[in-house]
Amino acid sequence: MLDPADIVRFSDTPAPEGASPWVGGAAPARDIEIVPPDPAWPERFAALETRIRAALGERVLALEHVGSTSVPGFAAKPIIDIDLTVADGADEPAYVPALEAAGFTLRVREPWWYGHRLLGADDPRAFVHVWSPDTPEPVRHVIFRDWLRGHPDDRAEYAAAKHAAAEAANAHGEDMMSYNDRKQDVIRAIYARAFRAAGLLG
């Protein structure tokens, strides 16, 4: 059971020396693209949700559309982010083969960071982030999503940060990880406001 301290405390644990999160030759993307909001994004999530639930059935404990494409009217990378909770994210044989048969590919394995796994799909473009129960990261994602949906000023601030981060990362030949680092301070500031409003911070 998560308590407020778990939710508000971020983990920036790096990969252990010599370890890589990337699976099967995958690598972080470059040439980051932020596009205008697409009204089809919710429909794409719904189609992906149907595929995931058909593949896993009762193994799906929770499934959420998160990230910028889950916020109506918000510019974003054209990739649907999904948080999937299963009984044990480390038990890859329990869900990875079924998802691979449904068109997803395991790309990231990070046992040192909340046990995170990531599977990608290309049609539509999507990232499925896999977590175990009582993991704080998917809880934070829902808080962030819902906060942005209701706070246009923070949407505008975050949109500006995303565009600036993408422009700088592309200009310097950086990858998606550097893009994420460039906008992290703005994200954390918005999280702090959302946490405080939810009574999670004093």
Rank of each mutant, 00 (worst) to 15 (best):
P133M: 12
D134H: 15
D134P: 12
D134E: 15
P136C: 12
P136D: 09
P136S: 11
E137V: 15
V139A: 15
V139H: 15
V139N: 12
V139G: 15
R140G: 10
H141W: 14
V142D: 13
F144P: 04
W147G: 09
W147I: 13
G150E: 13
H151R: 09
H151S: 11
P152M: 07
D154Y: 08
A156M: 06
A156W: 05
E157T: 03
E157P: 07
Y158E: 04
A159W: 02
A159G: 05
A159V: 07
A160Y: 11
A160P: 01
K162L: 03
H163W: 08
H163G: 10
H163F: 09
A164C: 08
A165G: 04
E167Q: 10
E167M: 07
E167Y: 05
A168V: 10
A169H: 08
A169F: 09
N170M: 12
A171N: 12
H172A: 15
G173T: 08
G173C: 06
E174T: 12
M177N: 15
M177T: 11
S178V: 14
Y179A: 00
Y179P: 03
Y179N: 02
N180W: 05
N180L: 11
D181S: 08
R182F: 00
K183G: 00
K183V: 01
D185A: 08
V186A: 03
I187T: 05
R188L: 05
R188G: 02
A189F: 00
I190D: 00
I190N: 00
I190K: 00
Y191K: 08
Y191N: 10
A192L: 04
R193M: 02
A194G: 00
A194E: 01
F195W: 05
F195Q: 02
G199F: 03
G199L: 00
